[in-house]
Amino acid sequence: MTVRVQAEPFDAGAELNAFAQGRTDIGAVVSFTGVVRDTQGDLQEMLIEHYPGMTTRAIATIADEAVARWALADVLVIHRYGPLKPGEPIMMVATASAHRAAAFEAADFLMDYLKSRAPFWKKEVTAQGASWVDAKDADEDALRRW
């Protein structure tokens, strides 16, 4: 299991190629990359704040649960913080398992939990000013699926 919380950009393709490499016991690798989206056409920057003492451990707890529940061969989570530009990757998740259903489900589970249980907060900066992104009720509801 690899969990990285970093300000630096990452190369999602290179990370994915390196992930679970050399393993012959897996039949499926699923990945998700989250990208900074400019919804209104006026986003200058997305500022991501996090809780340094808690973040890595909170993500590792979520990843441990995914590994146990879906018997994953491996899991990777990278999440950035700091100022990001539209189009830049914010985070990625990759899961590896024997069969695809487990890899897909575990990636979906990880995303739902990272959204609402990993201590990150997004702030959008536009020419009009800056505002914190509100958590959505739908994000909390999504956790009940699991």
């Binding site: 989250g34 995303m111 609402s116 249980r117 201590p119 914190w132 509100d134």
Partner: peptide, 8 residues
């Protein structure tokens, strides 16, 4: 203390 988290 913090608002609901918005990761991912």
């Amino acid at each position: 203390f913090f608002p609901p988290m918005t990761g991912g």
